[in-house]
Amino acid sequence: MHATASSAGAPGFQRVYVWELPVRFYHWLNALCILVLTVTGFIIANPPAINTASEASFSYWFGTTRFIHFVTAYVFVFNFAFRIYWGFVGNQYADWKNFLPLRLAQFREVMSVLKVDILQSSNRPLLAVGHNALAYLTYFVMFLVFLFQVASGFAMYANMSDAWFPHLFTWMTPLFGGDAGLHFWHHLATWFFILFTLIHVYLVFYHDYVEGHGVLSSMAGGWKFLPSSALKSPDGKSWFGGAKAREADDKAGPVI
């Protein structure tokens, strides 16, 4: 799709190791946790009446469902904490500074992504080695929802537990007027993850389909396959994952 690459016959592609093993591990464990939490969460909110005419002492399936929800919540929390840690020690694509578009370059890339990929008013290729700036921003919002789910969930859980950790979040309860308000917003925020997953999966397919850089498999092996011409930018050592794409953009003139 790059003019230079395609005219010269086979494009020169380079394999770039983008997602380190801890990032991939985090991603899939996180995905599993969210799946389990969502499914058990909906069962807890509206349990099917599958048992009838039996003694309560024969069965504990609903208690078990709740137990799975709570245990998974702990796994989710520590996995999330690990990812935050990795934002400080991981490679440039995992860096925490990518997640907020505080620099002008990042903000411009957000606008470019909106034009090229979402509205498709421009067809000029965009190349982000890590995530693009809009994706990073979306993940930042998702992290905020993570924090809310953790805080509201553990605030509700605190009254069933003597452990210190859930009691760190009891300040949430008065903010929502009591447990009922917490339940409501905790339940509502679950829908964010469902909508997020729909769009996330769609966009991964979209990028792989249009760009062919192997973004779908990158979360399995860690590699993306990128045009070597675009990777050979002068400084070549920017911490910002999307910077190289932006430089390539600048050379090609402004996005329409």
Binding site: M1, S6, S7, A8, G9, A10, P11, I118, Q120, N123, P125, W191, I194, L195, L198, I199, Y202, Y206, Y209, V210, E211
Partner: peptide
């Protein structure tokens, strides 16, 4: 919202095939 999202994604997929059809599939030299 979920239904709207799926509808939006489907519309976007159709749009992608129209707007970016030159970039999709086998390219020259590939």
């Amino acid at each position: 919202l979920g239904a709207a999202t799926i509808a939006g994604a489907a519309a976007h997929a159709v749009l992608t095939n129209i707007r970016k059809h030159h970039e999709i599939g086998e390219q020259p030299g590939e």
